[in-house]
Every structure is written in C-alpha cells, then in structure tokens.
Deep mutational scan, measured.
Amino acid sequence: SQHQEELPPPPLPPGWEEKVDNLGRTYYVNHNNRTTQWHRPSLMDVSSE
C-alpha cells in the first residue's frame, strides 16, 4: 500500500487568518477587506492584483 506524506499547507497570504467556527469547520478571514471564505486562499490567488 502506498503511504503518502501529507505536505504542510502553504502559508496564508498576508492579512489572512485561519479560524474554526463553533461546529469545528475551518474557514479563512481576510482582514484586508473583512471577508471570510471556506477555501484556503493561496498566495497565487492574491498576487494577481
């Protein structure tokens, strides 16, 4: 059986914070524009500005 090492997730872009809601779900807060989202932001998402 193949065992895959879990890679650590990439660092969050500046201004982002990973949080967990009261149901144990992980979400991400963008403090730059005060938004939240479910999927993890990547540095590539942000660098397109």
Score class of each variant (00 low, 15 high):
Gly15Met: 11
Pro13Val: 07
Glu49Ala: 07
Val20Ala: 13
Arg34His: 00
Pro11Arg: 14
Leu7Gly: 07
Ser42Asn: 15
Asn33Val: 08
Gln37Leu: 03
Leu7Trp: 02
Glu17Phe: 04
Asn30Tyr: 04
Glu49Gln: 03
Leu43Gln: 05
Pro9Phe: 05
Ser1Leu: 01
Asp45His: 15
Lys19Ile: 07
Thr36Ser: 07
Gln2Leu: 02
Trp38Met: 13
Lys19Gly: 02
Met44Thr: 12
Ser47Trp: 02
Glu5Gln: 15
Val29Ala: 09
Gln37Met: 04
Tyr27Gln: 07
Arg34Thr: 10
Trp16Met: 02
Thr36Cys: 08
Asn33Thr: 15
Ser42Cys: 05
Ser47Ile: 05
Leu12Ser: 07
Trp38Arg: 11
Pro10Ala: 09
Tyr28Met: 00
Asn22Ala: 11
Tyr27Val: 04
Asp45Asn: 14
Ser42Met: 08
Leu7Glu: 02
Glu6Ala: 04
Arg34Met: 06
Arg25Ile: 02
Leu7Gln: 02
His39Gly: 10
Lys19Val: 03
Pro14Asn: 10
Pro10Cys: 14
Pro9Gly: 10
Asn32Pro: 07
His39Asp: 14
Asp21Leu: 00
Asn33Glu: 07
Pro13Met: 12
Lys19Met: 02
Asp45Met: 07
Val20Leu: 09
Ser48Cys: 08
Tyr28Ile: 01
Tyr28Trp: 06
Val20Lys: 10
His31Ile: 13
Val46His: 05
Met44Asn: 12
Thr26Asp: 04
Lys19Glu: 05
Glu18Gln: 06
Gln2Tyr: 13
Pro10Thr: 07
Lys19Arg: 06
Pro13Ala: 12
Pro41His: 01
Pro13Asn: 06
Leu7Arg: 12
Pro8Cys: 08
Glu6Phe: 04
Glu49His: 02
Pro11Phe: 03
Gly15Val: 05
Glu18Met: 10
Pro41Ser: 01
Glu6Gln: 10
Val46Thr: 13
His3Glu: 00
Asn33Ile: 13
Glu18Ala: 09
Asn22Ile: 09
Pro8Ile: 15
Pro41Thr: 00
Leu23Phe: 14
Gly24Trp: 01
Val46Arg: 12
Ser42Arg: 12
Val29Asn: 02
Val29Phe: 13
Trp16Asp: 01
Ser1Phe: 15
Asp21Asn: 03
Val20His: 13
His39Cys: 11
Gln37Cys: 11
His3Asp: 15
Gln2Asn: 15
Ser1His: 03
Ser47His: 13
Pro9Trp: 02
Arg34Asn: 14
Pro8Gln: 13
Gly24Arg: 05
Pro14Ser: 14
Val46Met: 06
Gln37Phe: 01
Asp45Gln: 05
Leu43Asp: 12
Met44Phe: 10
Pro10Ser: 11
Glu49Pro: 15
Met44His: 15
Trp38His: 06
Pro13Ile: 03
Pro13Phe: 02
Leu23Ala: 15
Val29Thr: 06
Glu6Trp: 02
His39Arg: 12
Trp16Glu: 05
Glu5Ser: 15
Ser48Asp: 03
Glu6Arg: 06
Asn33Tyr: 12
Leu43Glu: 07
Asp21Pro: 00
Pro41Gln: 02
Gln4Ile: 06
Glu6Met: 02
Gln4Glu: 01
Arg25Met: 11
Lys19Asp: 02
Thr26Gly: 04
Lys19Ala: 07
Trp16Leu: 02
Asn30Ile: 01
Tyr28Asp: 02
Gln2Gly: 01
Trp38Asp: 12
Thr26Leu: 09
Arg25Cys: 14
Val20Ser: 08
Trp16Val: 05
Pro11Asn: 04
Ser48Trp: 03
Gln37Asp: 05
Ser48Asn: 03
Pro13Trp: 03
Gln37Thr: 15
Arg34Gln: 12
Arg40Leu: 06
Leu43Pro: 15
Gln4Cys: 10
Tyr27Thr: 08
Asn32Thr: 09
Val46Leu: 14
Asn33Leu: 13
Gly24Pro: 01
Pro14Thr: 12
Asp21Ala: 03
Ser48Arg: 13
Leu43Lys: 14
Leu43Gly: 09
Pro10Val: 13
Leu43Thr: 12
Trp16Cys: 06
Asp21Lys: 00
Glu5Lys: 02
Met44Cys: 11
Gly15Glu: 01
Thr26Asn: 09
Leu43Phe: 10
